[in-house]
Nucleic acid binder design. Sequence first.
DNA 1: CACCAACGAATTGCGCGCAATCTATTTGCG
DNA 2: CGCAAATAGATTGCGCGCAATTCGTTGGTG
Lengths: 173, 173
Amino acid sequence: MAQDHQDTTHQGMEKAGPGKGAADQATLLSNQLCFSIYSAAHLFNRTYKPLLDRLGLTYPQYLVMLVLWSGDGLTVKAIGEQLDLDSGTLTPLLKRLEAAGLVSRQRDPQNERLVRVTLTGAGRALQDHLGTVQQAILCATGLNLDGLKALKVQVDELRAGLAANLGPADQDG
Amino acid sequence: MAQDHQDTTHQGMEKAGPGKGAADQATLLSNQLCFSIYSAAHLFNRTYKPLLDRLGLTYPQYLVMLVLWSGDGLTVKAIGEQLDLDSGTLTPLLKRLEAAGLVSRQRDPQNERLVRVTLTGAGRALQDHLGTVQQAILCATGLNLDGLKALKVQVDELRAGLAANLGPADQDG
DNA sequence: CACCAACGAATTGCGCGCAATCTATTTGCG
DNA sequence: CGCAAATAGATTGCGCGCAATTCGTTGGTG
């Protein structure tokens, strides 16, 4: 389980002099927060892995299945918009899901540019294991309902902030 | 900027009957929280990219440099413990940093199993850009000091919970 | 000393994640 | 209609992240 990285303060800032402690603390914290998120994402991935291995899915594949379980026959683009992934990631992933017999991919006859992704019987059947996986994840977080709510709200605020600064802020130097 | 995933409730659970709404809500939330973290990590990565591109670093490489700036001459294993990465990830990464002239890698004469990673002059010089990058990231989060603090505390609680359930909880089916 | 387990790093293989490029289809406009 | 722009996917290349394996070194034991 690696280490307790929480308290380490190795994320420098030696340049700043005294008198502006709050700003320093904020830059330090944003730096550490980023690592915490990065690390938490990996921990989630490792937590999911043994659960999803039994279903023959990776976590990103599982996300795609979640999207399809909630709305079948979507295009690659529509799936990508829900998960914030592009065709460079989705095309090979979907091919693997197709090779596994979980989905089928076919061009839309009305518009040959679109590829519609449809669940097979096996793909639909996998949904039965959804509850088991989700409950195991809930348990692994060690959080209660309030903790989950509070955290998700704040992470989503962060996401909104980061997303807002992606399009516009591209000031070159 | 993808989409606003916050409110979508596509993460199923049709199986559960009525009367246990709280438990359902918790499993749903843990599922959504995981996606939020996954998505936030990617957004952070995209936010860092244009900043780090100018330094010729990727975000994981930047993390390694942060570790070395705070303590030079570490072994691969020590770096891996701080970042929760293994040699399969670090060895090629460090080779790229070495090829870029930022670090040098050499076996410890006292113990030939260890590889010590040392900053070069160019590697040390890169530290000058640290403040600029960190301030840009702080700005991009859109959070203030209190928001950063609160979020980091909660993410670290989550990390602790997930880490605690990684070693022990491996109940096979 | 010989041997074997432990250790640290390197290597291999695979699946993302994303930028950049390419192809095919569709749409729009004269 | 004819042709350019837009659109949707596919492809390529590269760098993680991690499991599994291999290799060389070290330490402990008989």
